[in-house]
């Protein structure tokens, strides 16, 4: 294999590098959620207790989906260099996410009475919502960081990988919920 000296133009630039890295990471996480969902069916089949708070479950699902929308609008805003709209949208994403987490906390509080972690459905329920909530939490921290970085003027329409990466991750977390919600609340 012969070598010449030439300028080092790698096939990938640093942006595609980060993008691919993120996709690989998301692929990896898919397997975690896949295992979670299969476990639910393996342990409990399609059984579902009566005491699930259906309205609450529906509400927080909608809240989470709305947060994804807001995140998307935030990303579009920054790509047009609209810093103010960017900040508003990402902050509303964070607020919606916190509402979601409060909702999950409320459900946990109720669940403790009907199906505590030491019951079969409780085990599933707390693990699935817990692992998902952990992802929401990390996503929120990342969102807070990009808000701060945005206000330091670190993003503009040419360079906003931070926003893009976090928002992609956020969409992934939401999509995961789209699969978790029916497995917990709807199947029967």
């Amino acid at each position: 294999m012969s070598t010449h000296s030439e300028t080092n133009t790698h096939i990938g630039n640093s942006l595609s590098l980060k993008r691919i890295g993120l996709w690989v990471f998301i692929l990896s996480e898919t397997f975690l959620f896949g295992a979670l969902i299969s476990t639910r069916y393996y342990l409990q089949g399609v059984e579902r207790p009566d005491h699930l708070n259906q309205p609450l479950g529906l509400v927080i699902s909608i809240v989470l989906l709305m947060s994804s929308l807001a995140a998307y609008r935030g990303e579009v805003a920054v790509s047009y260099n609209d810093q103010k709209k960017f900040r508003i949208n990402i902050i509303s994403t964070i607020i919606l996410a916190s509402i979601f987490l409060v909702g999950v906390g409320w459900e946990w509080y109720e669940a403790f009475q009907y199906f505590p972690p030491s019951s079969a459905f409780g085990t599933i329920f707390f693990t699935m919502t817990g692992i998902h909530a952990f992802h929401v939490l990390t996503g929120m921290i990342a969102l807070i960081i990009i808000v701060k970085m945005g206000s330091d003027g670190r993003f503009n329409s040419n360079s906003y990988w931070g926003v893009e990466g976090v928002v992609k991750y956020w969409h992934f977390v939401d999509v995961a919920w789209v699969f978790i919600y029916p497995t917990l609340y709807l199947v029967n």
Partner: peptide
């Protein structure tokens, strides 16, 4: 694994 995959996909010499 993440690192090696990304490296091979993106950082191959011309």
């Amino acid at each position: 694994g993440l690192n090696f995959l990304t490296t091979t996909i993106c950082l191959r010499a011309p």
